[in-house]
């Protein structure tokens, strides 16, 4: 019988790749009897789907949070870009 530690290992991995048939059955059996691992599985699945690109948690992490470039940093970047833009030579140094 699988231990909870091993069960959580499989629960984690099956979110990212299909398990072997034997692992699938062992996990299914464990989950049948283990309330805590069922709960763990549900929680990490929620995080997994939310954090995935396009998921709601993902969007929230990337969109809001009040993080933005410091104004000086933005200004500095604009200057560097402008500078690079007006450099006359191309990548091969030819004209």
């Amino acid at each position: 019988m699988l231990s909870c530690r091993d069960a959580t290992r499989l629960i984690s991995r099956r979110l990212d790749e299909p398990l072997a048939r034997r692992e699938r059955w062992a996990l299914r059996l464990h989950l049948l009897f283990c309330y805590w691992c069922r709960r763990f599985a549900a929680q990490v699945r929620v995080l997994h789907h939310g954090l995935y690109p396009g998921g709601r948690l993902h969007r929230k992490l990337m969109d809001q949070g009040g993080e933005s470039l410091a104004p000086e940093a933005a200004r500095h970047m604009e200057e560097r870009l402008q500078q690079a833009l007006t450099e006359p030579t191309d990548e091969n140094g030819r004209h």
Binding site: L61, M62, S68, L69, A74, M77, E78, L81, L85
Partner: peptide
């Protein structure tokens, strides 16, 4: 490119 920092700076930074 002139508008990159303004348009995408914050998103890339986050």
């Amino acid at each position: 490119p002139q508008a990159w920092v303004k348009r995408h700076g914050d998103a890339l930074f986050r």
